[in-house]
Design a protein around this nucleic acid. Structure first.
Lengths: 138, 138
DNA sequence: ACGGTATCGAGAATTATTATTGACTTGATA
DNA sequence: TATCAAGTCAATAATAATTCTCGATACCGT
């Protein structure tokens, strides 16, 4: 996500109302380096905002995804993870402990993917998911 | 998937029983160049085998995935697609018509991904999904 | 402060996939 | 070919993440 001010500004200009519930979700995500599920966000925020509902969490996440402030990740079978880091990076999932680790291209020796068109199809984005065993589990 | 004979042989040696229902799913998948969902497979086979059940389709697909004869793909929100092509390749999904197009590395100008370890994490496989607009929709 | 409108929370609905269960097949053995 | 134990079948119920519904409420421009 962008900074709090920038994100708020974008939402305002898109016509979204900035309710306390939405702001709490946004504050939760900004600077968050994990990849929380809707359930985790709800669980954590519920402590501080007991009246928060699941619908509002999902509603806010979908709204943020629509304006590309978060990205949803299909890493597991039964639920989505949300990534507040919108910089270009990939993900590594450990098949043993299920941890999710960010992979930034510069760390890899040779990560390059096609851009532009392939066989006439226009590529606009790429999602890369590595699976294997993480450092701790090895 | 491998050839019919090879696949059958693998299942037999793994101790799976080769029932007509399973064979029908396997025959449906072999040589299939699309990425059918369980529902599509069930719908198509139901015509010829009216007694086939959804459970059997899922059961067979999970079995085939376990022995790496098919790969499940999380391309959309609500369901899985199954890919009988187990050669190394990536996928392109059109955001307009939802079509799925196979991308083989040799077609792209510069597809290379890290292998082995990254920051101490052992990569065993990589899934790449491109999104954009397909040729027909452009 | 007022009123129209968007959003809230609570719970019901949706739906792909998985689990359960009793009857039936399969395939190995003789 | 007949028998039998174990695995599999089909039907249906269960599961669970996400979305939808709707009356009540809060926000914002005037």
């Amino acid at each position: 996500m962008h900074s709090f001010e920038t994100t708020i500004g974008r939402l305002r200009s898109e016509g979204f109302k900035l309710t306390p519930q939405r702001l709490s979700v946004i504050r939760y995500l900004i600077g968050n380096k994990t990849h929380p599920t809707a359930a985790v966000i709800y669980g954590d925020l519920k402590k501080k905002y007991p009246s928060l509902s699941f619908s509002t969490v999902y509603n806010t996440l979908n709204m943020l995804e629509k304006i590309s402030e978060v990205q949803s990740l299909h890493l597991f079978d039964d639920f989505l993870n949300y990534d507040p880091d919108i910089s270009s990076h990939y993900h590594f999932v450990c098949r043993s402990c299920d941890s999710i680790i960010d992979i930034f291209p510069r760390e890899g020796e040779n990560v390059s993917l096609p851009e532009g068109d392939i066989s006439g199809n226009r590529i606009e984005s790429a999602q890369v998911v590595f699976k294997g065993m993480c450092k701790s589990c090895l």
